[in-house]
């Protein structure tokens, strides 16, 4: 269960998030769409305090953090309820694919090494990269790196997975395999919050789509409504642009 109330973020005087309220049920898959620079990524990054919001209350599972007086320990606890997949993968370049997945399990969650290794190998098998366990990121294609990135987030057993434009930096030839893996994650009813420009993908897997503009959630509903019967004029204009 995720609950966000009054989440607010300014860069200087410009508001990027303007009092966002959002509830996500367990197992719900929510996709955020909208024009560039409207706060979609910032919303994700504020949920785990990679960007620090100025105000708002965030509850993920049994951790609640009030941005007005967030302590370091609260922020760490919040981050440990979430996993994040980055546009530029963010794989640790000094660690192999397997070690990238093990790192959080051993260093943060304090699982024994042998157990973490087993879990990492199982996750790599699910991502179709069992034979790349001992490869360093530099030796992997963009698509393979992003699949390891998704595997790393999956292995955490986190309450909520955040995907920040996971296919935007990929060459077109690798987009399909990454979306396939995300579909597989979605099928397990893992709670997911996804920022993407892949509209077809959003239609397929989202339980709910949020349209953001100007730091606000302008329209929210099932894909059939958002794509089939958009209410807000700005959403209609946005869809015309991206769907041509």
């Amino acid at each position: 269960m995720i609950r966000v109330r009054g989440l607010t973020k300014h860069f200087g005087a410009a508001p990027v998030l303007d009092g966002i309220d959002l509830d996500i049920a367990d197992g719900e898959r929510v996709v955020i769409i909208g024009p560039s620079g409207t706060g979609k990524s910032t919303l994700l990054r504020c949920l785990n305090f990679l960007d620090v919001p100025q105000a708002g209350v965030i509850t993920i599972g049994d951790v609640t953090v009030d941005a007005a007086h967030a302590r370091k320990a609260d922020i760490l606890a919040l981050r440990r309820c979430t996993g994040m997949v980055f546009q530029n993968y963010g794989l640790f370049a000094n660690k192999t694919a397997k070690e990238n997945i093990m790192e959080a399990l051993t260093t943060v969650q304090k699982h024994p090494r042998a157990e973490a290794e087993q879990r990492a190998l199982a996750v790599l098998a699910e991502t179709g990269l069992a034979d790349k366990a001992d490869s360093f990121p530099a030796a992997l294609s963009g698509g393979q790196q992003q699949r390891v990135g998704i595997g790393r987030a999956m292995a955490l057993g986190a309450e909520l997975l955040l995907f920040d434009e996971p296919t935007s930096a990929l060459d077109p030839e690798w987009v399909g395999e990454v979306l396939d893996l995300m579909r597989a994650v979605a099928e397990r009813r893992q709670t997911m919050l996804i920022v993407t420009h892949e509209m077809q993908f959003a239609r397929e897997i989202a339980d709910r789509v949020l349209f953001m503009e100007g730091g606000k959630i302008v329209e929210s509903g099932p894909p059939s409504q958002i794509f089939g019967a958009p209410q807000d004029a700005r959403l209609r204009k946005f869809l015309q642009r991206v769907e041509g």
């Binding site: 785990n48 990679l50 760490l76 606890a77 981050r79 440990r80 979430t82 996993g83 994040m84 980055f86 546009q87 530029n88 993968y89 963010g90 794989l91 640790f92 370049a93 000094n94 660690k95 790192e103 959080a104 260093t107 943060v108 990135g149 790393r152 955490l156």
Partner: peptide, 30 residues
């Protein structure tokens, strides 16, 4: 060291010390 690796280390809940010692410094050493 590439910014996204700092963020990835933070996103999995590493402390500043863990991030420096295990991710950033080994790459800086190279």
């Amino acid at each position: 060291v590439d910014r996204s690796q700092w963020e990835a280390a933070q996103s999995i809940g590493m402390t500043q010390g863990q991030m420096m010692w295990r991710i950033i410094l080994p790459q800086a050493a190279r």
